[in-house]
Design a protein around this nucleic acid. Sequence first.
DNA 1: CTATTTTATCTTGATGTCAAGATAAATGAA
DNA 2: TTCATTTATCTTGACATCAAGATAAAATAG
Lengths: 162, 162
Amino acid sequence: MDEVDLIIAQWAKQRPELNTRPMALIGRLMRVSHVLAAEMGKTFAKHNMNGPSFDVLATLLRTGPPHALSPNDLLATMMITSGTMTNRIDRLEQAGLVKRIQNQNDKRSVLIALTEQGKTLIEKTVTAHVETQEKLVSPLTDEEQATFNKLLIKYLSANENV
Amino acid sequence: MDEVDLIIAQWAKQRPELNTRPMALIGRLMRVSHVLAAEMGKTFAKHNMNGPSFDVLATLLRTGPPHALSPNDLLATMMITSGTMTNRIDRLEQAGLVKRIQNQNDKRSVLIALTEQGKTLIEKTVTAHVETQEKLVSPLTDEEQATFNKLLIKYLSANENV
DNA sequence: CTATTTTATCTTGATGTCAAGATAAATGAA
DNA sequence: TTCATTTATCTTGACATCAAGATAAAATAG
Protein backbone atom coordinates (compact mmCIF):
# COMPACT_ATOMS: atom_id res chain seq x y z
CA MET A 1 0.00 0.00 0.00
CA ASP A 2 1.88 3.03 -1.26
CA GLU A 3 0.90 6.62 -2.08
CA VAL A 4 -0.37 5.59 -5.49
CA ASP A 5 -2.60 2.88 -4.00
CA LEU A 6 -4.16 5.47 -1.73
CA ILE A 7 -4.90 7.73 -4.67
CA ILE A 8 -6.46 4.85 -6.57
CA ALA A 9 -8.60 3.86 -3.61
CA GLN A 10 -9.96 7.41 -3.52
CA TRP A 11 -10.87 7.31 -7.19
CA ALA A 12 -12.47 3.90 -6.76
CA LYS A 13 -14.78 5.44 -4.21
CA GLN A 14 -15.55 8.72 -5.98
CA ARG A 15 -15.49 7.59 -9.60
CA PRO A 16 -15.74 3.79 -9.63
CA GLU A 17 -16.13 3.62 -13.42
CA LEU A 18 -12.60 4.98 -14.03
CA ASN A 19 -9.96 2.57 -15.28
CA THR A 20 -7.20 3.25 -12.78
CA ARG A 21 -4.74 0.62 -14.02
CA PRO A 22 -2.94 2.93 -16.43
CA MET A 23 -2.88 5.60 -13.72
CA ALA A 24 -1.13 3.27 -11.30
CA LEU A 25 1.62 2.44 -13.76
CA ILE A 26 2.11 5.98 -15.04
CA GLY A 27 1.86 7.50 -11.58
CA ARG A 28 4.57 5.24 -10.22
CA LEU A 29 6.80 5.82 -13.19
CA MET A 30 6.53 9.58 -12.75
CA ARG A 31 7.38 9.21 -9.08
CA VAL A 32 10.42 7.11 -9.80
CA SER A 33 11.68 9.61 -12.36
CA HIS A 34 11.22 12.38 -9.82
CA VAL A 35 13.21 10.48 -7.19
CA LEU A 36 15.97 9.64 -9.65
CA ALA A 37 16.28 13.24 -10.83
CA ALA A 38 16.48 14.48 -7.26
CA GLU A 39 19.16 11.96 -6.27
CA MET A 40 21.26 12.60 -9.35
CA GLY A 41 20.86 16.32 -8.68
CA LYS A 42 22.67 15.89 -5.36
CA THR A 43 25.74 14.58 -7.15
CA PHE A 44 25.62 17.46 -9.59
CA ALA A 45 25.31 19.97 -6.76
CA LYS A 46 28.43 18.53 -5.11
CA HIS A 47 30.27 19.53 -8.27
CA ASN A 48 28.72 22.98 -8.47
CA MET A 49 26.37 22.21 -11.28
CA ASN A 50 22.86 20.98 -12.02
CA GLY A 51 21.17 18.57 -14.40
CA PRO A 52 20.86 20.94 -17.36
CA SER A 53 24.51 22.00 -17.13
CA PHE A 54 25.62 18.41 -16.75
CA ASP A 55 23.72 17.38 -19.87
CA VAL A 56 25.46 19.95 -22.01
CA LEU A 57 28.95 19.42 -20.61
CA ALA A 58 28.66 15.63 -20.74
CA THR A 59 27.46 15.77 -24.34
CA LEU A 60 30.49 17.82 -25.29
CA LEU A 61 32.81 15.45 -23.44
CA ARG A 62 31.50 12.21 -24.90
CA THR A 63 31.69 13.63 -28.42
CA GLY A 64 35.45 13.34 -28.07
CA PRO A 65 38.08 15.90 -29.08
CA PRO A 66 37.85 18.77 -29.82
CA HIS A 67 34.81 18.70 -27.49
CA ALA A 68 32.83 21.21 -29.52
CA LEU A 69 29.36 21.17 -31.09
CA SER A 70 26.93 23.76 -32.41
CA PRO A 71 23.88 24.63 -30.29
CA ASN A 72 21.80 22.88 -32.91
CA ASP A 73 23.82 19.66 -32.61
CA LEU A 74 23.48 19.84 -28.84
CA LEU A 75 19.74 20.35 -29.17
CA ALA A 76 19.40 17.19 -31.23
CA THR A 77 20.13 14.90 -28.27
CA MET A 78 18.19 16.82 -25.62
CA MET A 79 14.45 17.26 -25.52
CA ILE A 80 14.50 21.05 -25.17
CA THR A 81 13.76 24.14 -27.26
CA SER A 82 16.34 26.41 -28.86
CA GLY A 83 15.64 29.18 -26.35
CA THR A 84 16.41 26.82 -23.51
CA MET A 85 19.68 25.85 -25.21
CA THR A 86 20.69 29.49 -25.53
CA ASN A 87 20.03 29.98 -21.86
CA ARG A 88 22.03 26.90 -20.84
CA ILE A 89 25.01 28.00 -22.91
CA ASP A 90 24.82 31.51 -21.45
CA ARG A 91 25.10 30.16 -17.90
CA LEU A 92 27.92 27.78 -18.75
CA GLU A 93 29.80 30.53 -20.53
CA GLN A 94 29.36 32.85 -17.54
CA ALA A 95 30.77 30.09 -15.34
CA GLY A 96 33.77 29.73 -17.66
CA LEU A 97 32.98 26.10 -18.50
CA VAL A 98 32.34 26.55 -22.23
CA LYS A 99 33.11 29.21 -24.80
CA ARG A 100 31.33 30.28 -27.98
CA ILE A 101 33.52 30.19 -31.09
CA GLN A 102 32.39 31.85 -34.31
CA ASN A 103 32.12 29.48 -37.26
CA GLN A 104 33.77 31.20 -40.23
CA ASN A 105 32.21 28.83 -42.78
CA ASP A 106 28.66 29.55 -41.67
CA LYS A 107 28.19 32.84 -39.89
CA ARG A 108 24.73 31.90 -38.63
CA SER A 109 26.28 29.22 -36.50
CA VAL A 110 28.66 29.03 -33.54
CA LEU A 111 30.62 26.23 -31.90
CA ILE A 112 30.25 25.58 -28.20
CA ALA A 113 33.54 24.23 -26.87
CA LEU A 114 34.57 22.96 -23.44
CA THR A 115 37.16 25.15 -21.75
CA GLU A 116 40.03 23.46 -19.90
CA GLN A 117 38.21 24.20 -16.67
CA GLY A 118 34.98 22.78 -18.08
CA LYS A 119 36.71 19.63 -19.28
CA THR A 120 38.37 18.98 -15.92
CA LEU A 121 35.10 19.52 -14.06
CA ILE A 122 32.93 17.34 -16.27
CA GLU A 123 35.46 14.48 -16.28
CA LYS A 124 35.30 14.31 -12.51
CA THR A 125 31.54 14.78 -12.39
CA VAL A 126 30.82 12.02 -14.90
CA THR A 127 32.72 9.53 -12.75
CA ALA A 128 30.74 10.49 -9.66
CA HIS A 129 27.50 10.49 -11.61
CA VAL A 130 27.99 6.93 -12.84
CA GLU A 131 28.63 5.83 -9.27
CA THR A 132 25.40 7.49 -8.20
CA GLN A 133 23.52 5.74 -10.99
CA GLU A 134 24.96 2.39 -9.94
CA LYS A 135 23.64 3.01 -6.43
CA LEU A 136 20.28 4.09 -7.76
CA VAL A 137 19.61 0.94 -9.77
CA SER A 138 20.98 -1.39 -7.10
CA PRO A 139 17.61 -2.06 -5.39
CA LEU A 140 16.76 -4.16 -8.44
CA THR A 141 18.58 -7.39 -9.32
CA ASP A 142 20.51 -7.61 -12.58
CA GLU A 143 17.70 -9.66 -14.04
CA GLU A 144 15.07 -7.15 -12.97
CA GLN A 145 17.14 -4.33 -14.43
CA ALA A 146 17.36 -6.21 -17.72
CA THR A 147 13.60 -6.80 -17.78
CA PHE A 148 12.97 -3.17 -16.95
CA ASN A 149 15.30 -2.02 -19.69
CA LYS A 150 13.61 -4.25 -22.26
CA LEU A 151 10.19 -2.87 -21.38
CA LEU A 152 11.45 0.68 -21.73
CA ILE A 153 13.04 -0.12 -25.10
CA LYS A 154 9.81 -1.64 -26.34
CA TYR A 155 7.83 1.32 -25.09
CA LEU A 156 10.13 3.88 -26.66
CA SER A 157 10.27 2.08 -29.98
CA ALA A 158 6.46 2.10 -30.07
CA ASN A 159 6.51 5.84 -29.49
CA GLU A 160 9.14 7.03 -31.93
CA ASN A 161 6.52 9.04 -33.75
CA VAL A 162 4.64 10.36 -30.72
CA MET B 1 19.63 1.16 -31.75
CA ASP B 2 17.96 4.16 -30.12
CA GLU B 3 19.18 7.54 -28.88
CA VAL B 4 20.38 6.03 -25.63
CA ASP B 5 22.41 3.37 -27.44
CA LEU B 6 24.16 6.09 -29.41
CA ILE B 7 25.06 7.94 -26.23
CA ILE B 8 26.39 4.75 -24.69
CA ALA B 9 28.47 3.96 -27.77
CA GLN B 10 30.07 7.39 -27.45
CA TRP B 11 30.97 6.82 -23.81
CA ALA B 12 32.34 3.37 -24.65
CA LYS B 13 34.74 5.04 -27.02
CA GLN B 14 35.74 8.03 -24.88
CA ARG B 15 35.60 6.48 -21.41
CA PRO B 16 35.58 2.69 -21.82
CA GLU B 17 35.94 2.08 -18.09
CA LEU B 18 32.51 3.60 -17.31
CA ASN B 19 29.71 1.24 -16.33
CA THR B 20 27.00 2.40 -18.70
CA ARG B 21 24.38 -0.19 -17.77
CA PRO B 22 22.72 1.96 -15.10
CA MET B 23 22.87 4.92 -17.47
CA ALA B 24 20.96 3.01 -20.14
CA LEU B 25 18.15 2.10 -17.78
CA ILE B 26 17.89 5.49 -16.09
CA GLY B 27 18.26 7.38 -19.36
CA ARG B 28 15.40 5.48 -20.96
CA LEU B 29 13.21 5.88 -17.93
CA MET B 30 13.75 9.63 -17.93
CA ARG B 31 12.89 9.75 -21.62
CA VAL B 32 9.70 7.79 -21.12
CA SER B 33 8.61 10.05 -18.29
CA HIS B 34 9.27 13.07 -20.49
CA VAL B 35 7.17 11.63 -23.32
CA LEU B 36 4.34 10.70 -20.96
CA ALA B 37 4.28 14.14 -19.36
CA ALA B 38 4.18 15.82 -22.76
CA GLU B 39 1.34 13.62 -24.03
CA MET B 40 -0.73 14.04 -20.89
CA GLY B 41 -0.07 17.76 -21.12
CA LYS B 42 -1.87 17.86 -24.47
CA THR B 43 -5.04 16.56 -22.85
CA PHE B 44 -4.74 19.13 -20.08
CA ALA B 45 -4.23 21.92 -22.61
CA LYS B 46 -7.44 20.91 -24.40
CA HIS B 47 -9.23 21.66 -21.15
CA ASN B 48 -7.43 24.94 -20.55
CA MET B 49 -5.17 23.69 -17.85
CA ASN B 50 -1.77 22.12 -17.28
CA GLY B 51 -0.26 19.36 -15.19
CA PRO B 52 0.21 21.33 -11.98
CA SER B 53 -3.37 22.67 -12.07
CA PHE B 54 -4.72 19.24 -12.87
CA ASP B 55 -2.92 17.72 -9.89
CA VAL B 56 -4.47 20.16 -7.46
CA LEU B 57 -7.98 20.03 -8.91
CA ALA B 58 -7.95 16.23 -9.22
CA THR B 59 -6.77 15.88 -5.63
CA LEU B 60 -9.66 18.02 -4.44
CA LEU B 61 -12.13 16.04 -6.57
CA ARG B 62 -11.05 12.57 -5.48
CA THR B 63 -11.17 13.60 -1.80
CA GLY B 64 -14.94 13.62 -2.22
CA PRO B 65 -17.41 16.21 -0.92
CA PRO B 66 -16.99 18.95 0.17
CA HIS B 67 -13.94 18.94 -2.14
CA ALA B 68 -11.80 21.05 0.16
CA LEU B 69 -8.35 20.58 1.71
CA SER B 70 -5.75 22.83 3.32
CA PRO B 71 -2.64 23.71 1.31
CA ASN B 72 -0.69 21.52 3.70
CA ASP B 73 -2.94 18.51 3.04
CA LEU B 74 -2.56 19.10 -0.69
CA LEU B 75 1.21 19.29 -0.31
CA ALA B 76 1.31 15.89 1.35
CA THR B 77 0.44 14.02 -1.84
CA MET B 78 2.52 16.10 -4.25
CA MET B 79 6.27 16.29 -4.31
CA ILE B 80 6.48 20.09 -4.23
CA THR B 81 7.41 22.84 -1.78
CA SER B 82 5.00 25.10 0.07
CA GLY B 83 5.91 28.08 -2.09
CA THR B 84 5.01 26.13 -5.20
CA MET B 85 1.68 25.21 -3.63
CA THR B 86 0.91 28.85 -2.88
CA ASN B 87 1.66 29.70 -6.49
CA ARG B 88 -0.57 26.92 -7.83
CA ILE B 89 -3.46 27.98 -5.65
CA ASP B 90 -3.01 31.62 -6.69
CA ARG B 91 -3.36 30.70 -10.38
CA LEU B 92 -6.35 28.45 -9.81
CA GLU B 93 -8.03 31.11 -7.72
CA GLN B 94 -7.42 33.73 -10.42
CA ALA B 95 -9.01 31.33 -12.92
CA GLY B 96 -12.03 30.93 -10.64
CA LEU B 97 -11.52 27.18 -10.24
CA VAL B 98 -10.88 27.15 -6.48
CA LYS B 99 -11.48 29.54 -3.62
CA ARG B 100 -9.67 30.11 -0.34
CA ILE B 101 -11.88 29.82 2.74
CA GLN B 102 -10.66 31.00 6.13
CA ASN B 103 -10.56 28.31 8.80
CA GLN B 104 -12.11 29.78 11.95
CA ASN B 105 -10.70 27.05 14.23
CA ASP B 106 -7.10 27.64 13.19
CA LYS B 107 -6.42 31.05 11.78
CA ARG B 108 -3.02 30.04 10.40
CA SER B 109 -4.75 27.72 8.01
CA VAL B 110 -7.12 28.03 5.04
CA LEU B 111 -9.24 25.59 3.09
CA ILE B 112 -8.91 25.35 -0.67
CA ALA B 113 -12.26 24.40 -2.13
CA LEU B 114 -13.36 23.62 -5.68
CA THR B 115 -15.78 26.19 -7.11
CA GLU B 116 -18.74 24.91 -9.14
CA GLN B 117 -16.83 25.89 -12.27
CA GLY B 118 -13.73 24.09 -11.04
CA LYS B 119 -15.71 20.95 -10.22
CA THR B 120 -17.39 20.82 -13.62
CA LEU B 121 -14.08 21.33 -15.40
CA ILE B 122 -12.07 18.76 -13.46
CA GLU B 123 -14.79 16.11 -13.77
CA LYS B 124 -14.62 16.36 -17.55
CA THR B 125 -10.84 16.57 -17.61
CA VAL B 126 -10.33 13.50 -15.45
CA THR B 127 -12.38 11.41 -17.86
CA ALA B 128 -10.32 12.58 -20.82
CA HIS B 129 -7.09 12.13 -18.87
CA VAL B 130 -7.83 8.50 -18.08
CA GLU B 131 -8.54 7.85 -21.76
CA THR B 132 -5.18 9.40 -22.62
CA GLN B 133 -3.46 7.22 -20.06
CA GLU B 134 -5.12 4.13 -21.50
CA LYS B 135 -3.74 5.04 -24.92
CA LEU B 136 -0.31 5.73 -23.48
CA VAL B 137 0.13 2.33 -21.85
CA SER B 138 -1.40 0.42 -24.78
CA PRO B 139 1.93 -0.27 -26.56
CA LEU B 140 2.62 -2.79 -23.78
CA THR B 141 0.57 -5.96 -23.28
CA ASP B 142 -1.40 -6.43 -20.06
CA GLU B 143 1.27 -8.82 -18.86
CA GLU B 144 4.07 -6.39 -19.64
CA GLN B 145 2.19 -3.62 -17.85
CA ALA B 146 1.84 -5.84 -14.79
CA THR B 147 5.55 -6.69 -14.82
CA PHE B 148 6.43 -3.04 -15.23
CA ASN B 149 4.18 -2.07 -12.36
CA LYS B 150 5.70 -4.69 -10.07
CA LEU B 151 9.20 -3.46 -10.80
CA LEU B 152 8.19 0.11 -10.02
CA ILE B 153 6.54 -0.98 -6.78
CA LYS B 154 9.66 -2.85 -5.74
CA TYR B 155 11.84 0.09 -6.63
CA LEU B 156 9.71 2.61 -4.77
CA SER B 157 9.45 0.45 -1.67
CA ALA B 158 13.25 0.19 -1.60
CA ASN B 159 13.47 3.97 -1.73
CA GLU B 160 10.91 5.04 0.86
CA ASN B 161 13.68 6.56 2.90
CA VAL B 162 15.70 8.11 0.03
C1' DC C 1 21.13 37.58 -60.19
C1' DT C 2 17.29 38.53 -57.25
C1' DA C 3 13.61 37.18 -54.38
C1' DT C 4 11.88 33.68 -51.50
C1' DT C 5 12.45 30.13 -48.33
C1' DT C 6 14.96 27.74 -45.00
C1' DT C 7 18.15 27.38 -41.26
C1' DA C 8 20.62 28.66 -36.87
C1' DT C 9 20.54 31.26 -33.02
C1' DC C 10 18.81 34.53 -29.93
C1' DT C 11 15.09 37.42 -27.57
C1' DT C 12 10.91 38.25 -25.02
C1' DG C 13 7.31 37.36 -21.89
C1' DA C 14 4.86 34.10 -19.14
C1' DT C 15 5.00 30.05 -15.99
C1' DG C 16 6.55 26.80 -12.64
C1' DT C 17 9.85 25.51 -9.41
C1' DC C 18 12.87 25.71 -5.35
C1' DA C 19 15.48 27.43 -1.21
C1' DA C 20 15.42 30.40 2.32
C1' DG C 21 13.26 33.17 5.11
C1' DA C 22 9.17 36.12 6.81
C1' DT C 23 4.79 36.25 9.25
C1' DA C 24 1.25 34.99 12.17
C1' DA C 25 -1.08 31.80 15.01
C1' DA C 26 -1.12 27.71 17.97
C1' DT C 27 1.28 24.78 21.20
C1' DG C 28 4.22 23.60 24.93
C1' DA C 29 7.52 24.32 28.80
C1' DA C 30 8.83 26.63 32.92
C1' DT D 1 1.07 33.17 32.60
C1' DT D 2 4.82 34.14 29.59
C1' DC D 3 8.30 32.97 26.51
C1' DA D 4 10.14 29.73 23.24
C1' DT D 5 9.05 26.50 19.81
C1' DT D 6 6.40 24.56 16.25
C1' DT D 7 3.19 24.81 12.49
C1' DA D 8 0.79 26.74 8.28
C1' DT D 9 1.12 29.73 4.76
C1' DC D 10 3.11 33.18 2.05
C1' DT D 11 7.04 36.07 0.04
C1' DT D 12 11.26 36.85 -2.37
C1' DG D 13 14.82 36.08 -5.57
C1' DA D 14 17.06 33.01 -8.75
C1' DC D 15 16.60 29.65 -12.44
C1' DA D 16 14.81 26.64 -16.11
C1' DT D 17 11.56 26.09 -19.41
C1' DC D 18 8.50 26.99 -23.38
C1' DA D 19 6.01 29.36 -27.24
C1' DA D 20 6.29 32.69 -30.40
C1' DG D 21 8.67 35.60 -32.93
C1' DA D 22 12.98 38.40 -34.30
C1' DT D 23 17.33 38.47 -36.78
C1' DA D 24 20.78 37.30 -39.86
C1' DA D 25 22.89 34.28 -43.02
C1' DA D 26 22.68 30.50 -46.35
C1' DA D 27 20.30 27.88 -49.80
C1' DT D 28 17.14 27.62 -53.50
C1' DA D 29 13.85 28.85 -57.17
C1' DG D 30 12.88 31.34 -61.22
